[in-house]
């Protein structure tokens, strides 16, 4: 994974050192595992809610 991070960071033009990449690897693993644990609870066909901005169903909207 660290090699993929290094390649991807370079492609994105990010100058990240090994300490950064290792910390990011740790963050990603932790969060990806946590997300995966919840994935099975999402009913099929659930439409993503991309946030209350503008046209969200919860909020009022601008003109």
């Amino acid at each position: 994974m660290i090699d993929w991070l290094r390649i991807e960071a370079a492609q994105q033009g990010l100058a990240l050192d090994d300490e950064d990449l290792e910390a990011i690897r740790h963050l990603l693993i932790e969060m990806k595992i946590a997300l995966a644990a919840k994935r099975a609870t999402i009913p099929e066909g659930t439409e993503p809610f991309l946030g209350p901005a503008g046209t969200g169903p919860v909020m009022g909207t601008g003109p």
Partner: peptide, 12 residues
Amino acid sequence: AEYHQAAQLRRL
């Protein structure tokens, strides 16, 4: 895909 799965949890 992960971003949208997070957004599905947000919807729920």
